[in-house]
Write a protein that binds this DNA or RNA. Structure first.
Lengths: 342, 342
DNA sequence: TTGAAAGCGCTAACAA
DNA sequence: TTGTTAGCGCTTTCAA
């Protein structure tokens, strides 16, 4: 009756080898073949051998979508980054991906492009895939996407920032602390007239605010701010220093919101015959691997992105498997790396 | 009978809102709700309104896994890159991802880590997800993975290289041509004693071979080769120049297999008091965005990675939707960008 | 334009 | 240890 004689009936099979085919070849029921493949210890040695042989002969690759649908477990983790090119987040994504892969999970990557609107539709698309976990760079502001995410019940980890009210889990550090510590560091170094070169970014806002507050507290002059908008390029850093020097030729130190911008500031300073750090101290953010080997090597704020990725993988997987997670909020801190540029 | 009274029967629903719920709320059959959502023109205005309202009230997000299983269309494209951090491929991935997203497709990202073994298991995992297309950086050598891929019938595009025998589609350029052209370029610039700094990579092999062959053809001395292995860092470039200068203090030009290595060579040269390009000409590969704004700006080989990503998206989507693809093999070429470092 | 039935390929639940 | 049955949530097929 329910036979697969396919003589006349319209079949809509995709044509690929299925578990059924493997089971038939091995002379067992589909569920037995499934067990042989997924929990080899739960079947007899003989069955195991026959099934594996059938798998081998047919080149069977299990359809994970079907499996996921049946088990409500996708073994898929989605990650959202603003950008992937020359982005400080990629070290985190790489370590996240590595950790996930080792545990049999796959990564789905979405780019929000620093746009809230796009992030929303991206998150809808992501939720539709029913991933077992979602990794977010930054903190998702209240809005439709956040509500949807909350409603979806999918484990979420927000990263690279701190807030008392995360959606779910959180691994980050304090941008306010960074702004203050960098200001204190530069003041201790003897600089008075400072400037800030920053991209348009809410986290950079907070670093800047804290930086200014720390200066004000010590009655230092306010730092000159240059906002380069969305263009986080080396060129923007060069141009920014140009602007700064026009308004404040005696500037002594510049804090940049990314290493690339800092590299631009250093480049422009050297090109104008200034000495770094004697005439101008420059501080970056991110500690992109190569800045430590440049001349002058760049002082910067180091974030342990790899650690964030690893922890995120661990927490998301644990949560998706129903295990308890030690701490929902983790502060991984940061370090100020002093090199030649200051 | 088949009612959803769930009084006693064990349900294994994931608990999320389903199409059924929406349909019930809108007073239509599930299939009608499906049509309202996916092909709005195929239902009456009244039904459309009721369904959309129900979607809105429930916060329904369609389960794409179920949809994919039923329709054999996943709207998922998988991409494999060796690495994501400071990688020249990311511009391609970013443009691929953007193009895909605009067409309603999602990107799954895998890292092969320059390891053939890992690439194999990665590809198995990818095939299991039944993506509508697969994007590979580089050409997949014959082996299990290639066989599996071929058998899967999934549209595949190999990139960043050329071969007469791609698995399926191909978008790339000739590494042999690059090696030769760069050699010719440097010879024309009047350099005789050359060196090559390169990572362990089959494509770099071919560029190197062609480079040497071009020198030999003009009876130039063989270029000194330094292989930095897997470490593609700026530091490796610095160290490499150190080695070169020990063996050949009079070297005049260095061709590097990546911009980062080239940056290292430039850095080391300047640190040693050499002038670039007067004492040493340096050529990179990749044209990472920021090298054009450094001092000295870096001469390099430019690949239009964005174009590769865009074309790949177009070709994969076309193929997965059963459309014809204009050309299976596309050579996007390259350009030699002359800047200050030569 | 709408719906009933069947099934995509797999696994959970229960039974033998 | 193995199998039967009934879904997972959606879309295709066919019929009204």
């Amino acid at each position: 009756m329910n036979e697969k004689d396919s003589s006349k009936r319209t079949r809509r099979s995709s044509g690929a080898i299925t578990l059924r085919d493997v089971a038939k070849l091995a002379g067992v029921a589909p569920i037995t073949a499934s067990r042989a493949i997924n929990t080899p210890t739960s079947v007899s040695a003989d069955v195991l051998r026959r099934v594996l042989e059938a798998v081998d002969r047919t080149g069977y690759v299990p359809n994970r979508m079907a499996g996921s649908l049946a088990s409500s477990k996708s073994r898929l983790i989605a990650a959202v980054v603003p950008s992937t090119v020359m982005s400080v987040f990629m070290a985190t994504i790489e370590s996240l991906n590595n950790s996930l892969f080792d545990q049999g999970y796959q990564l789905m990557l979405g780019q929000s492009g620093y746009s809230a609107e796009r992030e929303e539709s991206l998150l809808e698309a992501i939720i539709g895939r029913r991933p077992d976990g979602i990794f977010l760079t930054g903190i998702l502001p209240p809005g439709r996407a956040r509500t949807r995410l909350l409603a979806s019940g999918i484990p979420v980890v927000e990263t690279w920032d701190l807030t008392p009210t995360p959606i779910d889990m959180l691994i980050g550090f304090s941008h306010t602390d960074i702004g203050r510590k960098v200001a204190e560091f530069l003041m201790k170094k003897g600089h008075r007239r400072m400037a800030i070169v920053r991209a348009e970014d809410e986290r950079a806002d907070r670093r800047t605010l804290a930086f200014q507050a720390a200066l004000q507290q010590q009655a230092y002059p306010k730092a000159l701010e240059v906002n380069v908008g969305a263009s986080r390029s080396l060129k923007s850093g060069r141009d920014a220093l140009g602007k700064i020097l026009t308004k404040q030729p005696k500037v002594q130190a510049v804090f940049c919101s990314s290493d690339l911008l800092a590299l631009g500031v250093v480049t422009e300073a050297l090109a104008r015959g200034m000495r770094v750090p004697q005439d101008l101290a420059v501080m970056g953010f991110g500690d992109v691997p190569f800045v430590q080997d440049m001349v002058p090597s760049l002082s910067t704020v180091r974030i342990n992105g790899e650690q964030i990725g690893e922890l995120a993988a661990k927490m998301l997987i644990a949560r998706s498997e129903g295990l308890a997670v030690d701490a929902r909020i983790m502060d991984v801190g940061f370090s100020i790396i002093e090199r030649q540029s200051t």
